[in-house]
């Protein structure tokens, strides 16, 4: 069984069918890209997966460590906490007045809260908590290094440049120790050099952590370069699925999604 199985996912907003009977699966150590024109329902899929929307029909199941979680039945924070789905947002949602390091510590809330015994051990300054906090800071440091953010660790998150904020959001999601990482347009607004760096980061996450990456992205150079599997949505329906070379050659995709603009595919 796959790590993440989505079957017959359907959601309507009023009369509009935003997602229409979409099924797919995602595996460990694989990058699954979801692409499609604006309004195809990509972010809506993420919002269903992470519990912000409840689908009208469908089953979303995470299976790992001999356990199964049915996402459509869980509250949003439980999906993140128990099923282990972390995400980033299209319009970056950091804690802007808190420092970069604090952002990463908040992400490790579950472990730290337990170590602090719901604050009791923390209030008396117990050693076990201090050790846990040290470990959390080290873990955060590790991610800061990978995301090239160590030098700004004590700055306010809101004061970082745009590209750094994008990377910080990924670092923060990774600090939750997820099984599945959902990235919503991580390269949006980045320049080509930054995009390339980001692609390398995402690939290193796939290669070094045992997690599945779901990626929504408009930058085809990034998508085609790093994806193992691509799912194409159009008007809420899945119109194609396959490896990048298959998608690139798929006539349906070219017709429905790329239209005449074939450069975007040909470029990489």
């Amino acid at each position: 069984m796959s790590l993440l199985t989505v079957e017959h996912l359907t959601i309507r907003f009023g009369g509009l069918v935003a997602i229409d009977d979409v099924s797919f699966a995602a595996e460990d150590r694989r990058i699954t890209a979801i692409i499609g024109p604006n309004g195809a329902g990509k972010t809506t899929v993420f919002n269903c997966l992470t519990g912000f929307y409840k689908p009208d029909v469908g089953r979303m199941c995470v299976a790992a460590d001999g356990q199964e979680w049915l996402l459509e039945r869980m509250e949003g924070f439980r999906i993140a906490r128990d099923a282990g789905i972390a995400r980033t947002f299209q319009n970056i949602r950091l804690f802007p007045k808190m420092t970069v390091l604090e952002n990463l510590l908040v992400a490790q809330h579950k472990a730290l809260q337990r170590a602090s015994m719901f604050s009791l051990a923390g209030l008396v300054g117990a050693k076990s908590f201090r050790l846990a906090e040290q470990a959390a800071i080290e873990r955060a440091r590790g991610w800061l290094e990978r995301c090239k953010l160590v030098h700004v660790a004590d700055d306010e998150a809101g004061s970082l440049p745009y590209g750094a904020q994008r990377r910080l959001e990924i670092a923060r999601a990774m600090c939750t120790g997820p099984r599945i990482l959902c990235l919503d347009e991580p390269a949006a607004g980045l320049n080509p050099a930054e995009s390339a760096e980001l692609a390398a980061l995402v690939r290193s996450v796939r290669d070094e952590e045992k997690i599945a990456v779901l990626l929504i992205e408009h930058d085809m150079s990034v998508v085609m370069e790093i994806s193992d599997q691509i799912i194409v949505l159009d008007h809420g329906r899945k119109i194609a699925q396959g490896r990048p070379d298959e998608i690139r050659a798929n006539p349906d995709v070219i017709r429905a999604y790329l239209g005449t603009d074939e450069e975007a595919v040909a470029a990489p």
Binding site: F52, F77, A80, F89, F95, P96, V106, S119, R172, A173
Partner: peptide, 20 residues
């Protein structure tokens, strides 16, 4: 962690939920 979560909640409740 609880106190940090308070401040995080003040900053962005949706992000908090996404972090479990």
């Amino acid at each position: 962690p609880l106190g940090r979560a308070w401040e995080a909640l003040r900053e962005d409740e949706i992000a908090c939920r996404a972090l479990g």
